[in-house]
Design a protein around this nucleic acid. Structure first.
Ligand SMILES: [Mn+2]
Ligand SMILES: [Mn+2]
Ligand SMILES: [Zn+2]
Ligand SMILES: [Zn+2]
Lengths: 136, 136
DNA sequence: TTCGTACCAAATAAAAATTATCTAAAGGAA
DNA sequence: TTCCTTTAGATAATTTTTATTTGGTACGAA
């Protein structure tokens, strides 16, 4: 449980009841998709609109409060932004566990308690071509 | 350019003109989303339905012919299945480049020609909890 | 305090994306 | 070729996401 009011202000966003509730909902289990978030928040705030959750997820993502975790074949999960890390995603129950990125890749692929099926590594950035275009 | 007829049969799928065209379209540039695929195929086959492309992407993915590459904030890309590898995704032009996974992670993060912004690593598999449930 | 402005939530409405249904046609084995 | 199964295409239905409109609220300037 963090101080989400301050977190929002620190990123230049107004602190509203709805935004704080969305952040609370996410922080409970770390990673949630839009439906899980909405279902949580609507219990405390029955009149909230799903569109409001959509809008706020986008704006909080754009302002660096949240991160979107794309999951193959499913809806994206959202998490409070923190240092880069990796996700162990269970293809059976859908659980998502954070894992530190300190270890070398060799260590990562030799996970003891996790039956690894698929590795999905995406590095986002600016490619060479776009880089040279910027310069010109 | 591969023999997609055989590829499909090898995975227990019937070879149809539509499926082969979808695979051809994907193989041209490696990674394409549903709209790019449809736009390509419809040129050669004006009567193809978008629903057919949807259905075939799913069935070919489920049968191991294709892989889905989730891209944060965009539609998923599809590629012909091959060994696990990593993706350099340009946040500016959207280009996706394959990168071998041989190198250690330290090497990966020190890319020379790519301005790295975000690392997204998802490992899919069966979690400990699900594993023990299977045993019982 | 009283405006004026900016921002936001909620309620729709609208649009876009995905999936389901149904019938005719095509693929493939014998 | 014949027969059975699978698939494509057309279309409808559903689901997901975004846009619009309206009214409210916070906040600073006057
Ligand atoms: Mn995480
Ligand atoms: Mn690839
Ligand atoms: Zn599990
Ligand atoms: Zn680029």
């Amino acid at each position: 449980m963090q101080n989400f009011v301050e977190l929002l202000k620190a990123h230049g966003l107004k602190s509203t009841f709805q935004r704080v509730q969305i952040l609370e909902a996410i922080s409970i289990c770390g990673h949630k998709d839009i439906d899980e978030i909405y279902n949580d928040v609507v219990k405390l705030h029955p009149t909230i609109s799903l569109a409001t959750v959509y809008k706020n997820l986008i704006i909080m993502k754009d302002n660096g409060v949240l991160c979107e975790v794309s999951v193959s074949g499913k809806k994206s999960k959202y998490e409070i932004k923190k240092e880069d890390h990796l996700h162990l995603i269970c293809t059976h129950c859908g659980s998502i566990e954070d894992f530190t990125l300190e270890a070398s890749f060799d260590k990562i692929v030799n996970l003891q308690d996790f039956e690894l099926q698929k590795k999905e590594i995406n590095l986002y950035g600016i490619c060479t071509k776009c880089h040279s275009q910027k310069a010109s």
